[in-house]
Amino acid sequence: MEGNNPESYAGIGAFVPRTARDREMWDRLVAFCDKEPKAFERDPATSHVTGSAFVLSADRASVLLTHHRKLDRWFQLGGHCDGLADAHFTAWKEAYEESGLRRIRPLSDRVIDVDIHAIPQNPREVGHWHYDVRYLFQAEAGEPQSSAESKALAWVPLNRLSDVTDSEGVLILPEKLEQFLSDHC
């Protein structure tokens, strides 16, 4: 494990890079935010920062995933910052909007993961990059209800993630959760 001193960036928060992948993603995110004045806006011409929520079940054995309507794949909850330079708030807000849950508690205000991935061109926008900043939450009340952005929602056991998705950005959750729990328990 690398040091426990988190690195911080305005609008994103603190992150402790632990692997070469973590370091690369964090450095790319910080460099993007430093050079792009519209980093938190929803402009596909410049790419943008997004905020995502890994929402765990009360027993922390499952994560709530959404079957994304446009991309037709299973992902964590999340969305665009839409000009608000606060990725943690965006992740929390999107978790509520996309899940239908009545109470969601942040497990930390620290970033649990950064994932930079390409969004393919579609009829409404050019291809671009999402600089996705991920945070960890826990569901405390309510039953999931799909939103207009989702085909379905499902509590997926952490040990069964590969049964529903091949997204490396989702499959990394068990490793990230183990690191989080070792730091906080």
Rank of each mutant, 00 (worst) to 15 (best):
E36I: 10
I116V: 15
L136W: 00
L173N: 04
G127F: 04
R28I: 02
H68Q: 12
A91C: 15
F32G: 03
A45L: 15
P6Q: 04
C81N: 14
R110T: 09
K35Y: 07
M1C: 01
A58W: 03
L77C: 10
I119W: 05
A141P: 02
L158G: 02
H80E: 14
D34E: 15
S146K: 15
A20S: 09
L65N: 01
R42Y: 14
L101D: 06
S62A: 13
E140P: 01
V16E: 09
L101T: 05
E94K: 14
G142A: 01
A87K: 00
H130N: 15
L171N: 09
R18C: 04
D22A: 03
F180K: 03
F75K: 12
E178L: 09
H67S: 06
D27L: 04
Q179C: 01
A10R: 08
E7A: 03
A139Y: 02
Q121V: 12
M1F: 04
F32S: 08
T90G: 08
F137R: 01
E168S: 14
F54S: 03
D82I: 06
S167R: 13
E97M: 14
T90R: 07
F89I: 05
P6M: 06
G79Q: 07
A14E: 13
R110M: 13
R18Q: 07
D166N: 06
I112E: 08
A154V: 02
S182Y: 01
D43S: 13
D72A: 14
G11M: 00
E24L: 12
I116L: 13
L107F: 08
D86Y: 00
G83T: 14
V164K: 02
G79D: 02
G78E: 02
A87R: 01
L56P: 03
G78F: 02
E178S: 15
G169R: 01
L84M: 13
F89T: 13
T165C: 10
L56I: 05
P44R: 07
A31G: 09
V16G: 10
Q138T: 05
E168F: 10
A95C: 08
R23L: 07
H130E: 11
F40I: 06
I172C: 04
A139V: 00
A31V: 09
F180M: 08
R102I: 08
E97C: 11
V49P: 00
I12E: 00
T66H: 03
I116S: 08
G127L: 09
V156E: 00
Q76H: 11
P123M: 12
R105M: 12
S62M: 04
R28A: 07
N122S: 14
A14F: 01
I116K: 09
A152G: 02
V63Q: 05
S8W: 06
R102C: 14
R69M: 12
D183L: 11
E178R: 06
R28V: 04
M1D: 03
E98K: 12
E175H: 12
G127I: 07
E168G: 15
R105G: 05
D166C: 08
A152F: 02
A152K: 05
R134S: 05
E168L: 12
E97I: 10
R28C: 09
I172Q: 10
E168C: 06
Y9M: 06
D132Q: 10
V164C: 08
D27R: 11
G13M: 03
L107A: 13
L107W: 01
L77R: 02
L153V: 12
A141W: 03
F32T: 06
